[in-house]
Simulated scan of single mutants.
Amino acid sequence: MTAPTTSRPPAGPVPAWRADPYALALRTGRGPLFLRRTDGWLLPLEVERWCAGTDAADESVLSRCRGSVLDIGCGPGRLVAALAGRGRRALGIDVTPAAVTRTVRRGGTALCRSVFEPLPGERRWDTALLIDGNIGIGGDPTALLERTAHLLAPGGRLLVEAAAVEVDERCEVRLDDGRGTLGTPFPWARVGRRALLRHAEAAGWRAAGSWTLAGRHFAELAPAPPRDPGAPATLGSPTPLLPGTPRGPGAPATPGAAP
């Protein structure tokens, strides 16, 4: 596992996600496609699910969206298109032109832009989405959560999907099509439910709720009230918002199932 060399992701598009394996998978609507770690471990990516319509787990996210919605790392745009079809104001951003093209063809609105670049409507979005493992964008979850806070209107909510296993890792990965074609290395992160809460607290968020459906784990985050400097820290305290979360120290960051 290789940690990023900087504490914050660089501004601007992430060239790795323009790599041919990902773009081709989105154009064809099918895999195989993996994230390959430097130690050779592979994380399967669910291209077919991303390119299909929304499922029950997706609908559980969409039902919690309020007002205008920004989908960060929208991929082929199933969530943006579903929101648009319901008359909701929604914008997807993705650094891969093929993802933006597919989103627009599905009836959604999307821009080829990194979340760390200037974006339309900053501080005016009511809901932001980090779904399908996109909490890993840039390899620094805390920095990503801090950036997202600056995109939302006061009282805005962030809906995040956590990994299916308790993991908290930052690593360097490549896209791998399983046939010998590799993309360029880029930083990525994976966080489980407990790790997500730790990063959220560090970035000024609090958990407003959580749920699990079809083996996928989600959390709704809201801006945390300013903390009294003299108040004791609460990090690691038990929380009723994550049923099934084990007590005690979190599990080590070992490879597990796909998020």
Score class of each variant (00 low, 15 high):
residue 126 D to M: 06
residue 97 P to H: 11
residue 97 P to G: 12
residue 157 R to P: 09
residue 182 L to H: 07
residue 145 L to V: 11
residue 71 D to W: 02
residue 107 G to A: 11
residue 70 L to C: 06
residue 221 L to S: 00
residue 31 G to P: 13
residue 244 G to C: 13
residue 246 P to K: 07
residue 34 F to E: 03
residue 86 R to A: 10
residue 122 E to C: 11
residue 249 P to Y: 06
residue 53 G to K: 08
residue 234 T to R: 15
residue 4 P to G: 00
residue 88 R to G: 12
residue 53 G to P: 03
residue 87 G to S: 07
residue 224 A to V: 03
residue 203 A to L: 13
residue 100 V to L: 05
residue 57 A to V: 12
residue 7 S to Y: 08
residue 197 L to H: 06
residue 238 P to I: 10
residue 131 I to Y: 03
residue 76 P to N: 12
residue 4 P to L: 00
residue 78 R to Q: 10
residue 256 G to H: 03
residue 190 R to Y: 08
residue 236 G to S: 09
residue 155 G to A: 09
residue 78 R to G: 06
residue 147 R to H: 04
residue 219 A to K: 10
residue 113 R to P: 10
residue 54 T to K: 09
residue 148 T to D: 05
residue 201 E to T: 07
residue 199 H to Y: 03
residue 224 A to F: 03
residue 66 R to I: 13
residue 148 T to S: 09
residue 78 R to I: 08
residue 119 L to V: 01
residue 109 T to Y: 12
residue 33 L to T: 04
residue 147 R to L: 04
residue 206 R to E: 05
residue 13 P to W: 08
residue 210 S to E: 09
residue 195 A to C: 13
residue 211 W to Y: 09
residue 82 A to W: 03
residue 213 L to M: 11
residue 63 S to D: 15
residue 162 A to Y: 01
residue 144 L to E: 02
